[in-house]
Design a protein around this nucleic acid. Structure first.
Lengths: 207, 207
DNA sequence: GCCATTGTTGACCGCGATTCAATGCGGTGC
DNA sequence: GCACCGCATTGAATCGCGGTCAACAATGGC
């Protein structure tokens, strides 16, 4: 446990340890309020080691965010393939909320991704959202590109991020109400999209 | 025009000039890619002056964002009071899109700051969104607090920010389709809220 | 036990944010 | 028109922090 001088770890362990720590620190304070020295001290590690594992502070931050994003996607993919239709929507939203409740800070960091609109962070977030969007569209049987539905789902995801963040920060609404709203809202959103693009082969009611 | 040595301006003018410049610079590059020196040089002003007007870089950034947020709210408030119901929704969304088309970069900065990293920026964005939310709720005749409707509107706004940012970055969809979607979506969202809170005295159909 | 590999360190460097005492422009009173 | 004063403005000095690098030591193979 204690390390009088040095502790040598496997690359993966150390990397994971640092990522988790980074997530926690960047969640607590703002990006440029967290100094490399502070991170190193907190980790009980030298500054140089951080530069050995990640290229620099920015890259470290980016990796932390990616770590969180990966966790979220993983959670969503834990939903059994067997579930379809509204039941699947319910399960996925539940998984989403569970993730937020368990890794609240990580989620917060994930969403507060912009250090003043950094292209790399923006791109990473965009890819993460596309993953979520793909899963939603897959859930209603849409595989081919459908711009209107992509728009609708993008709107939905943006809304989810907003309300869930609010919910996590200041618990004003019960989880139940939030869940109900989100389930009904995805359906309503998809119906709006269907009204604008009636030819799309979506299945909103697979039982 | 040219200033061989010094140019002395009114406090308000200089402040406005610096804010506008800041908005432009922070929109172009990431926060910590923009150095105080660069800002000062671009403004044709000394570094120290920036510290005289704003407390520091962070505060300067914050003020720039606030500037942009103010412009957006102003645009929304330019919609005539006479318009009500769906027509008002259409007008306000149009005003929103107009603002984004005219001040696209400022809008981008505004939002990427909003997702933003530190408590002050977050708080500022929250207040700005509350202003928008209040205007939407007012538009349907809701003045008293209604948690479910606040949730719904928060979701809607989050979605709008997401899709509008996407739309601004990579014009994949026509403005018309976006507009149609957003108009129908606000109605659908409010209806979902109404289903969960049937007692609310909303007016979705004032002609 | 020796050696190679590589995880790990700590002192050093330079840029950029911040400070502050000095400077001079613009308006005011006479 | 002139002297003066307040306040916008400056730029040199400071300092903290991100980043670099050559040396060091823990682990595993022989």
């Amino acid at each position: 446990m204690a390390d009088p001088r040095r502790t040598r770890l496997q690359t993966d362990e150390r990397r994971a340890q640092l990522l988790t720590l980074g997530l926690r620190l960047f969640s607590t304070r703002a990006y440029d309020e967290v100094s490399i020295d502070a991170i190193a001290e907190e980790a009980g590690v030298s500054k140089g080691l951080l530069y050995h594992y990640f290229g620099g502070k920015r890259a470290y931050y980016l990796a932390s965010i990616e770590h969180a994003a990966g966790g979220l996607i993983e959670s969503l993919d834990a939903v059994p393939e067997a579930l379809v239709g509204p039941a699947r929507a319910l399960a996925m939203i539940t998984a989403y909320l569970d993730f937020v409740e368990h890794h609240g800070d990580a989620y917060g960091t994930l969403l507060s991704g912009g250090v003043g609109s950094d292209p790399e962070v923006t791109h990473l977030m965009a890819r993460s959202r596309e993953e979520v969007a793909a899963r939603i569209l897959h859930g209603v049987g849409l595989e081919a590109p459908r711009p209107v539905f992509e728009l609708a789902v993008r709107h939905y995801i943006g809304g989810v991020e907003a309300v869930v963040l609010d919910w996590h920060d200041r618990r004003q609404l019960s989880r139940t109400v939030l869940l109900q709203f989100l389930v009904q809202q995805i359906r309503a959103t998809l119906e709006v999209a269907l009204a604008l693009d009636p030819d799309a082969a979506v299945q909103l009611d697979v039982p």
